[in-house]
């Protein structure tokens, strides 16, 4: 999931009887699967939770460009370079769709970006891992975008209209990302040298667990997940989504001829799902707290991009003003 651990402010779920008439009408609308739009009344907690979740999601798209940007100059062929640039441009676009959806809730884009830079807002833990070899571009597309798709397909049904519509648009574009990633790995496994094949397995070994962490911590009885599900901001629990991802990914892994770094991963005939080992949650929380391999570098790069681009934005405003004056004078 691109948004992990979103605070809802709820201590426990209110019953319909405990709600104010407005809250009750709102909840009944959500229960009837009627989308909430920007101008509709909504509980303050719903609005705040959405701003947190959508901004986290948008920041993830934007920071997600960085591990891939690392390989634009190093991609092995012109074709791969073009594909990678197209994918990165998509991520920028996804960030923009999401920031727009967030703004419909009255949030300010610059303020939310400032929160990211100050370390107050999160982005997905996955982007704090480095991309060390070319096969990482394949593994990122296949596993990371694959995990994002599982999450985002479900979010197309989220209760807030602008968020849901952004998800529909994003999902349409996302499957290109996953397929191009898988194809990179397939090409290496089919036509590559032993060294290149080892590179693929190495990329999978490093990115497998962090990809599973993308779905967030285990579902517990925490009021946050319950509230998000009741408001239908979230539509499926973290564990359900993670299981869906594993079930669809393992056959693809086997087709590649690779293995997962998880000795407990095996098909369970009884449940009809794959069993898998326990995630290293200490690592997850460490990365989320800012202590992953690349956290500081990612934020530094983002800040630098904003600061060094300031003159471009200023020039654009000056140019627009001048054009306006000229049109008025003519």
């Amino acid at each position: 999931m691109y948004a992990q651990l979103v605070e809802t402010g709820a201590k426990r779920l209110k019953t319909l009887e405990e709600m104010s008439p407005e809250e009750r009408a709102f909840q009944e609308k959500v229960d009837a699967e009627i989308k909430i739009e920007a101008k509709n009344w909504m509980p303050e907690g719903y609005r705040k939770t959405l701003v947190r979740q959508i901004s986290q999601h948008a920041h993830s798209e934007v920071v997600g460009m960085l591990p891939e940007g690392n390989w634009v100059t190093r991609a092995p062929t012109l074709k791969r370079k073009l594909q990678l640039m197209a994918k990165i441009q998509d991520e920028a676009g996804h960030g923009l769709y999401l920031y727009s959806a967030m703004e419909t809730l009255g949030a300010d884009r610059d303020e939310e970006i400032e929160k990211l830079h100050q370390g107050k807002a999160k982005y997905s833990s996955i982007f704090n891992y480095p991309t060390l070899n070319w096969a990482d571009m394949g593994a990122v597309g296949w596993l990371v975008d694959g995990a994002a798709i599982v999450n985002q397909v479900v979010l197309q049904r989220t209760s807030y209209g602008p968020y849901s519509r952004a998800m529909v648009r994003i999902c349409k574009e996302e499957s290109f990302h996953q397929r191009q990633g898988y194809q990179i790995l397939l090409d290496l496994m089919r036509g590559g040298t032993d060294e290149q094949k080892a590179m693929v397995q190495d990329a999978i070994n490093r990115l497998w667990w962090p990809s599973l962490m993308m779905f967030g911590p285990h579902d517990d009885e925490s009021p946050n997940s319950q509230q998000s599900l009741a408001w239908k901001i979230k539509r499926k629990s973290n564990d359900e989504l993670r299981q869906m991802f594993i079930d669809q990914t393992v056959p693809q892994l086997e087709f590649l001829g690779c293995t997962a770094p998880d000795p407990d991963l095996k098909w369970n005939e009884e449940t009809g799902h794959y069993d898998f080992g326990e995630i290293n949650w200490q690592e997850f929380y460490d990365v989320l707290k800012g202590n992953g391999p690349c956290n500081r570098e990612r934020i530094r790069t983002r800040k630098k991009a904003i600061d060094e681009g300031a003159w471009v934005r200023e020039a654009a405003v000056a140019y627009a003003k001048k054009q306006k004056q000229r049109t008025a004078a003519a």
Binding site: Q89, G93, L96, S100, R165, E173, A316, Y319
Partner: peptide
């Protein structure tokens, strides 16, 4: 209607919209 963009003027809005909403 497909969405929105920020821009310094209409011309830039048009360019941003093209990049953002008509890549395919």
């Amino acid at each position: 209607h497909v969405g929105s963009v920020h821009a310094a003027d209409a011309e830039m809005a048009m360019e941003n919209a093209r990049d953002l909403y008509t890549r395919r």
